[in-house]
Each structure stands twice: as C-alpha cells, then as structure tokens.
Amino acid sequence: MCATCGCGPNSHHHDHSHDHTHETSPGKKVVDVEQDILLENNLLAQRNRGFFEGRNILAINLVSSPGSGKTSLLERTLTDLKGELGFAVIEGDQQTANDADRIHATGTKVTQINTGKGCHLDAHMVLHAVQGMKLQADSVLFIENVGNLVCPAMFDLGEQERVVVISVTEGEDKPIKYPDMFHSSTLCVINKTDLLPYVKFNVEKAKEYARKVNPRLEIIELSCTSGEGMDQWYEWLKSKVLQPV
C-alpha cells in the first residue's frame, strides 16, 4: 500500500464523515451522507496545490481536443525560454511515450502517464507522477492532459492555471459545444493562426463564443509554426510566475 495516499491493490478508506442516521420504516435505517462524489480527487488536488505553492511551482494544466498542438506549443516554449525559466512536464496519453520523447528531446525533465482506457488525468495520477520527479523550486510544471475536451474538465489536478488550446482547423463553435472546459479555464490559446488564410475559421466568432461561456477568459492567438503571437504567450506565462523573494 502507498504510504502517502493509502492507495493499493485492495485500497479502502477508514475516514468517514459524521453522518446522521435515522429510521424510516422498521428494519431500515437512512444514512445521510451528504458527501461530494469528487471529494477524494479534490482533496488530493488540494494536496498537490499546497505542494506546488510551497515550492513556488507554477502548475499549468493544458487541455484540448487531440491534435490542437499542445505538445508543439510546449516544444517551442521549452526551447525558446530555455535558460530563462525552469521547466518540467507531465505528459498524459492513453498509450505510447511519443509525446514524452518529443519533450525529452528539448532537454526538459518529463514523465509520461499512460491512462490506458482512461479519458482524463486525475489528481491521484499527478500526485504519483510528481513524487518521482524531484521538481525544482521556482519552476514551471506543464501537465499536458489527455486530448479530450470533455472529461478532463471535471478533474482538478491542483493546478494554478488551466489553459485550453483550440486550433483554427477546428470549428469556431468549440467553446459552446464543449462549454465545461472553457468555463473552467483561465486562458484560451487559439493555435495554428498561420493556417487562417486556408480555413473558414472565424476568430472573432470563436472569441465571442468563448467569452459567452466565460467572460473572464483571457485569449491569445498564436502559431507555433510561424512564431506569430508567441511573445504574448511568453508574457502571460512570465506574469504568472512568482518571483522568489
């Protein structure tokens, strides 16, 4: 059994909330549980968050549908800002270590989580990934979630910022088709803007939809290929990093 969080092959938990029982009909009793179903995940997420805060690590959860360019955005960022900020990456995919290999090639510390049939990362997976990483204080940790615009929305990993990436080869109505993800994110990156002359994507419409779901959402348009807009993304990133005192 894991000494940190109690997980194991036959894990069961001994902590119980103070519930309230009363009789309804003879031979039956009602137990008022009143417990959040995501409680377990949320507690572990808060634990991760405390760990990150204590070491001044900026944890960023990157979410998108498959193929929006999360890994390409990371590759370029890790290369361009090498020497300026310290980085580490957790890669989440159902199968293969292909993305971890791409990140590793930039010289950045990386851990791959394979979720198997799982469609999202959860706080428990991140907790264990972090345990094996020896993260440096005052650094940035990118957590690249499984490519999926639905399921990862519900699972807090303990991140400070959630960045949703969409690309101009997708439909501009993604924000209202998958509102949960845009509602829970703090920044939206619109990627692949170099392809705008060749596709029908309406950037203004996409931004309007995104702000309908989340008026506080910041939006940055960029292209990892041409480099256009990357400065804005780097500025945003640096503004979120707390300088050590």
Binding site: P26, K28, K29, V30, D32, V33, Q35
Partner: peptide, 8 residues
Amino acid sequence: LRSLVLPD
C-alpha cells in the same frame, strides 16, 4: 451522494 438506506 446524499443518503443511503441500509438494513437495520
């Protein structure tokens, strides 16, 4: 999870 009914 709001409540459960269990045999007494």
